[in-house]
Design a protein around this nucleic acid. Structure first.
Lengths: 197, 197
DNA sequence: ACCTTTCTCTACCATTTGGTAGAGAAATGT
DNA sequence: ACATTTCTCTACCAAATGGTAGAGAAAGGT
């Protein structure tokens, strides 16, 4: 099925873009890894820039789905809910660092592109901010600036998931036990950061 | 003074590399911003790769100096000391996001390059880990895996300092008051994350 | 004053890159 | 069975890129 070629291109491109950065990846490299000619990539996506936009749009959808599913099935306690969301994002993110690596690349796009993408994530972010403010008002989370706390939590999760060098320097191993320790330490770190005094 | 040209090239290259990524910046762009010919850049640095290495070596030195100075003049209380270090790093980092943007790019280098660079930062990291472990043993910091906590604190600081998009989405403004609020929120976040239970 | 060294430049090179054009095979429709 | 559409390919293009070679100006030494 030819549309399968299109999805393969998106998957391979997403992986390479997220790991190396948009400009470090050429159409030839994507084509070679998919196993088609560069012209085939350009058949499905008119330009490299369009491919980048589609990859990012897919990523935004995937993350939104993951986060919203975690929220729906999460317990009522805010720290438990935060933990459920972090674990839900962490699971695919550590297996595939390119996922959050892509989100980080958004800051490197021209303004209009990055704004279009962050606009698609804005409803999710605003729900998180409003929820956080309500829990802080109820005394169930440490009182702080909800927006900055959302940004800090996001920075911590993406930062730790997308920089294997930083983890290697502190002696961490990417085996099953190591992943579990990292996830648990991350969750404890955020719980402690957000717990009411 | 011609050696001034060399330092200007390093400064401009560091800025561009840290903001956009190594592969998104050409020798011609660096030369244009310095105001010299591309050949002049290649006179001082034999290859683009050598320029990258020098920029990163300079960055490692600068950060090491900043952190060590903060440690020397910090109070004895571990949370106060952590706060002093975070503020010392945050100050140049937010004014010049390329600084930590460069550190993040280390993960994208070929293995031997990134290892050489992380090796130059390893003594600093190990001192931080040993200090953290001692304070945890003394009950002055929350007990956790010292290595992972160092990595998480680093991820939080660099993450928040190098992704203006994430901050813009939560409604943050990059004015003087906004910078102070961000710095204070970051410090509170980390204090809460590390405080003993 | 002249020689040597340092620094900067233009011209040039081969390769890479994003993209275009049209041919032909495979899939689909009538 | 034939026509049309979809998908994949090779060949080609202009521009960008990292780098080389050598000329000449500026700085420094004798």
């Amino acid at each position: 099925m030819a549309r399968q070629t299109r999805q393969t291109i998106l998957d391979v491109a997403g992986n390479l873009f997220g790991n190396r950065g948009f400009d470090a990846v050429s159409l030839d490299q994507i084509a070679a890894e998919v196993g088609v000619a560069k012209q085939t990539v350009l058949y499905w996506f008119s330009t490299k820039d369009e491919l980048v936009q589609e990859v990012l749009a897919e990523t935004a959808v995937e993350l939104t789905v993951v986060v919203e599913a975690a929220i729906r099935s999460a317990p009522d306690d805010p720290l438990d809910r935060m933990e459920a969301v972090v674990k839900a994002v962490f699971r695919p993110a550590v297996r595939r660092p390119s996922l959050l690596g892509l989100v980080r690349e958004i800051s490197r796009l021209p303004s209009e592109s990055s704004e279009r993408l962050t606009d698609s994530l804005r409803p999710l972010v605003e729900r998180a901010m409003n929820w956080m403010k309500a829990e802080m008002d109820a005394g169930r989370l440490r009182r702080a600036d909800p927006g900055l706390i959302v940004a800090l939590a996001y920075a911590t999760v993406t930062g730790i998931a997308t920089e294997p060098e930083a983890l290697r320097v502190v002696g961490w191993n990417a085996d099953i036990a190591g992943l579990r320790r990292l996830r648990d330490e991350l969750v404890d770190f955020l719980r402690a950061a957000l717990a009411p005094r």
